[in-house]
Design a protein around this nucleic acid. Structure first.
Length: 318
DNA sequence: AAACATCTCAACCGCGGATAT
DNA sequence: CATATCCGCGGTTGAGATGTT
């Protein structure tokens, strides 16, 4: 039963295509159309399986393929469609002329998905992630442990270093407390124009946050706000991906159209912690089921999920 | 300049649905 | 109806490019 994999068929070539192979495939399809992919390689004089030829054609050689960076419009379209369709890359690709499903999938996995994660949005559900607060006790313990280790590394007689470490720890805990207090009003937006997140790697360097679409956030961040997080309550700034607008009011107002106010979240520096939930503070440290949405209960977040953002969080504590 | 980390993207793999026999 | 084959899709991999230390 079943077919042998492509490569096992009598030593057919695999791997990157040469320009000569490309030309053969191109000229054959332009003359005859692809017809049966299975029989095409032989007819075109290629030592490849039909599957490989089809992939090369659809993902690379087809004349109407648009190459290069995705525009902001395309990015938004992908986000919108992914909200509705999920990982149906071919369906999404049909709405983006010139883009292949493979290209969109790659773009999603390498760029958009990570952006959403950094924004505290679950890339699969497009909702704020709920795992941060579920993990908070462990993270605080982890941070305290780390701080203790640092202190232990100091010479015992060095009271200054010890006091400094304790002060840092106290400040960190206070910072977390502030985040907890503010959490119910935090409404992440999927309007990527508005938010700049450094890559995890960049977060460790003092360089300026990377902007998306050239947006410079430096001048947008008000002072005297909760450390790391400020809010710009803008009326009438409609997030086209309203599915993601799940602050308390939007949960209540779901279905009320696009008139509810949209809260935008800015991060003031590269050390900022993105919100991972909109859950009420009172729920945060209780036994939490990961999803309070749509009446669908999902299992508790796994520790591996939590560790996904460990670098981000540890940076927050350091 | 070198080593290492991270990102990008072309290509492969395996599965499932559709179609042919 | 059962089985074989084809095709398309989504997930994953790995080599090369790029960035950082």
């Amino acid at each position: 039963m079943g077919r042998p994999p492509c490569g096992e068929e009598s030593g057919l070539k695999k791997g990157p295509w040469t320009t000569e192979e490309d030309e053969k495939l191109m000229s054959y399809i332009q003359k005859h159309g692809h017809g049966s992919w299975r029989s095409l390689p032989q007819l075109a004089g290629l030592n490849r399986c039909g599957k490989s030829c089809r992939l090369r054609w659809t993902n690379y050689l087809k004349p109407d393929i648009k190459r290069g960076r995705f525009s902001q419009e395309e990015e938004q379209t992908i986000l919108q469609l992914h909200t509705i369709l999920g990982n149906k890359w071919s369906a999404i690709a049909k709405r983006l002329p010139g883009r292949t499903d493979n290209e969109i999938k790659n773009f999603w996995n390498t760029s958009l998905r990570k952006k959403l994660i950094r924004m505290g949005i679950d890339p699969m559900t497009h909702r704020p992630r709920t795992d941060f607060f579920a993990a908070l006790p462990q993270l605080i313990a982890l941070a305290s442990l780390r701080q203790l280790v640092l202190v232990e590394q100091q010479p015992w007689g060095d009271h200054t270093a010890r006091l400094q470490a304790e002060a840092v720890q106290a400040a960190n805990l206070q910072h977390v407390h502030s985040l907890l207090q503010s959490a119910p009003s935090i409404a992440p937006t999927t309007d990527l124009e508005q938010i700049s997140f450094p890559s995890p790697r960049r977060m460790l360097s003092p360089s300026a946050p990377e902007g998306i679409g050239g947006v410079d956030l430096a001048g947008k961040v008000p002072q005297n706000q909760i450390p790391g997080i400020t809010f710009d309550h803008t009326v009438g700034n409609i997030d086209p991906y309203s599915v993601c607008n799940v602050d308390e009011s939007s949960e209540q107002n779901r279905g009320e159209g696009e008139n509810s106010s949209q809260k935008r979240l800015f991060l003031s520096d590269e050390n900022s912690l993105p919100p991972l939930t909109d859950m009420a503070v009172s729920n945060m440290c209780n036994s939490i089921t990961a999803s309070n949405y749509s009446g669908v209960s999902s299992p508790l977040p796994s520790w591996s999920d939590i560790l996904l953002d460990e670098d981000l969080l540890m940076k927050e504590f350091s």
